[in-house]
Design a protein around this nucleic acid. Structure first.
Lengths: 129, 129
DNA sequence: AAATAAATGTAAGGATTCCTAACATTTATT
DNA sequence: AATAAATGTTAGGAATCCTTACATTTATTT
């Protein structure tokens, strides 16, 4: 339990995360804009990223490289949060039904391969122990 | 081996390290001035601290709270680096002989107690796994 | 193929964080 | 009391990051 706390501690500034993930500031901010990450902020409004944030960014990058778009990635994350059960159309809100689900399925289908393994392609935290 | 690499990665800016250690910027810079830590620098000359740096700072703080002065802490660190063998007066340079050794010994003597355990009193890295 | 949308680049202006240097203060040692 | 050690405080300047807006590239849709 304290583990999640630690992994969520706001620690890294933008510059470091850019190096760690090899993403541009623009990309990182755009992903935040799209609710894929929610880094903390300093008193002066600067982003402070946690291990979990960095992990997420690495995963986002990996999925993007596999051709999944941001909407798809959002789905993946939501699925994970809801406990791995894929969303049923019945529970969907407004804009879709099976479409999005199928779309995602299709996207993920041809993605069952290896990531680029740019350096770390999973959990950054596991990198530090 | 890659472990040491990771623990030496420059990751944290001054502000975060201040929070993590509850030390002032002045203190941290002063300890660097006295060769107790050697944080990396960004291209723009900003300090970037590693896990090892933070660990060291926490240890410095703990030793200071136990009454050890900076010279004593320097000795402790040197001893550790040289493989735990306490320095023999014979090998000392110029300014001292048994004095410093005794001084240190005396300092450490009344210090065989518990630290304040401000939050983390050992290895920060162990905090993240 | 043209239009639209998604993802990223780039630039400007401003705010925050950090830097060094210098001097002041507090605490301990001589 | 004088000196030294450790820390505080302030000033001026530089680096990093912020948001906003517009441009470009790439993919999708009509």
């Amino acid at each position: 339990m304290g583990d999640q706390v630690r992994r969520n501690m706001p620690l890294f500034p933008m510059g470091i995360v850019m190096q760690l993930t090899e993403l541009s500031a623009r990309q990182i901010r755009y992903y935040e804009e799209n609710k894929l990450i929610t880094p903390a902020r300093s008193e002066g409004n600067r982003r402070l990223f946690s291990f979990n944030d960095v992990d997420r960014l690495l995963e986002i990058k990996s999925l993007l490289e596999r051709g999944v778009n941001l909407a798809g990635i959002r789905e993946v994350f939501e699925m994970r949060e809801r406990g791995m059960q894929p969303l049923h159309p019945y529970y969907r809100k407004e804009p879709t039904e099976a479409e999005l689900h199928n779309h995602l399925k299709k996207e993920l289908y041809q993605a069952g391969r290896y990531g680029k393994a740019s350096l770390i392609q999973g959990e950054l935290s596991r990198f530090f122990n």
